[in-house]
Design a protein around this nucleic acid. Structure first.
Lengths: 196, 196
DNA sequence: GTCTATAGTGGGATAGAC
DNA sequence: GTCTATCCCACTATAGAC
């Protein structure tokens, strides 16, 4: 419907432009400190022009940005199991090292969203739970193939891996000289009988 | 000078009240999203009343809060070396599990401060560098006493430990069921020939 | 589809009275 | 030491013209 022809073409383009600008700004300053006005200026239209495309106001922009980005990120993991899933985590991290904005976006927003009254609070709570469950399942699958070092408990391994991932991202964002993907790979290898 | 008697007594008390309120609010909402007005309301005075005590404006409040808190935190580590230093890291983490606000304050502010234009950008950069160096030195001291497992490199161990610390804090803040202190203790133990 | 104009709120900061 | 009054600015959102 919103294809490359007809009356909706311009709308679709504008929406994309706006989402890109919103993403950039949210990544830089977080949600609260970003203004619709500045997004509008980046796109080259007025503030009301932006709101025209996102009826729900600023909040609609936030959820649209999050949904768009998560759809991309989770796509890589769909269908993967066990070792493949874990290897993909490392791969995602390798890609993210080239996309500072994405990492910063999620750190900024997930930090704000710790506040139970933040509009994206539930979103990030659920997101983290889902990821933790998925990683736990991956470790469980490896366990069933006798691929885990003795004594490794899937849930613990999952939470530790996520902690290491978040932590390496934090250090990296703050300018420390760390290799996120390598760090995660080595950390996961500590749980595996056969290295990734 | 600003003791318990005389004309400055009230000032000293007010400054403390204001700092407490600022800490609470910064911890909850970060720096940018917090307002002097709200701090003032928490203390029970007007916005101008607050600014009277902190001539540098809102920014003076931020640096005062940070300095006050870091003085407390680094005091515990002063004089400690090697294993003692590492054990104290675990202890600090154990204490922090009872002080959600402190953890949230640093996560909120350090996240904002990733932006090079943030007033506290250099502060957090330097802080992290200092901590990383101190932990590296602690691991080096343990190494010299043959206390590290073969192949452990102090700098890598330091950065990984910090990453795990930050990561566990992040998961904990976001409501996951993790034991920060235990997690860090076990992680450090992986580097030591004799467990903490 | 985009604009101007405007309403309504809240921000930080200053001047000056008490 | 604290206040009121005030300034100027920025924000989100709506109404209505083109």
């Amino acid at each position: 419907m919103t294809g490359t022809r007809g009356a909706y073409r311009k709308t679709a383009q504008r929406r994309e432009q706006i989402l890109d600008a919103a993403f950039t700004l949210f990544a830089k300053n977080g949600y609260t400190a970003s203004s619709v006005n500045e997004i509008a200026r980046m796109v080259g239209i007025s503030q009301t022009g932006v709101l025209h495309h996102f009826a729900g106001g600023k909040l609609a922009l936030l959820t649209a940005v999050l949904q768009q980005r998560d759809a991309l990120a989770e796509e890589n993991l769909r269908g993967k199991t066990g070792r493949d899933f874990l290897a993909t985590l490392v791969e995602i991290s390798r890609i993210q090292a080239t996309q500072r904005g994405v990492v910063q976006l999620y750190r900024n927003l997930s930090t704000e969203a710790v506040d139970p009254e933040h509009p994206a609070h539930e979103y990030f709570r659920d997101r983290l739970s889902r990821i933790a469950d998925a990683v736990t399942q991956a470790f469980t699958e490896v366990l069933e193939q006798d691929g885990l070092t003795p004594g490794t408990e899937p849930r613990e391994a999952s939470l530790s891996t996520l902690a290491m991932t978040e932590g390496l991202e934090a250090l990296w964002l703050q300018g420390m000289d760390v290799d996120m993907a390598e760090g995660i790979r080595l950390f996961i290898n500590g749980y595996l009988t056969r290295a990734l």
